[in-house]
């Protein structure tokens, strides 16, 4: 087969066998990181809270993927597609967030602004920009909330 470029081309399965204690040590590290993430959630880092949680989770995920899922001893391509799935997810998240965060920046009359029922600002609408977009007066709840 064209894919076979290994030194040992006897066609047998050659998979890495990890030492028992090493695996247990990885589990220990995962538990420690869990404690760290719980502890970190006790402190308020402001807007960095989510980022810190995601970074610790990524460290844990990396340990699981690298050692429990054998990515370290596996074909590099498997690691590549694994990482790529997060890259594509990042694209999805970032561009969608870009839309949600900047709605109404240019033309603040262009979107629905509030819940018809509650008269509260709609998450689908924009948050009034403190940097100078003039706040329009809030229309009464029910009826006529759409521009």
């Amino acid at each position: 087969m064209s894919d076979h470029s290994h030194a040992h081309d006897d066609g047998k399965v050659h998979a890495h066998v990890s030492p028992f204690l090493f695996m247990v040590a990885i589990f220990g590290a995962l538990v420690v990181l869990t404690v760290v993430t719980v502890a970190a959630s006790r402190f308020d880092f402001g807007s960095a809270n989510t980022l810190i949680a995601v970074l610790i989770a990524t460290a844990k995920a990396a340990l699981v993927a690298t050692f429990f899922m054998h990515l370290k001893y596996d074909k590099g391509f498997h690691a590549l597609i694994f990482v790529m799935s997060f890259v594509f997810l990042g694209v999805f998240l970032l561009i969608t967030l870009e839309d949600v965060d900047t709605r109404g920046r240019v033309d603040n009359a262009s979107t629905v602004r509030m819940h018809e029922r509650r008269g509260e600002q709609a998450p689908g609408g924009f948050v009034l920009d403190p940097r100078g977009v003039q706040a329009r007066e809030r229309q009464p709840a029910g009826g006529g909330a759409h521009h």
Binding site: V38, A53, A57, V64
Partner: peptide
């Protein structure tokens, strides 16, 4: 691993 901190902690 991702769900726990994002939903339970933050």
């Amino acid at each position: 691993i991702y769900l726990f901190p994002l939903v339970y902690l933050v």
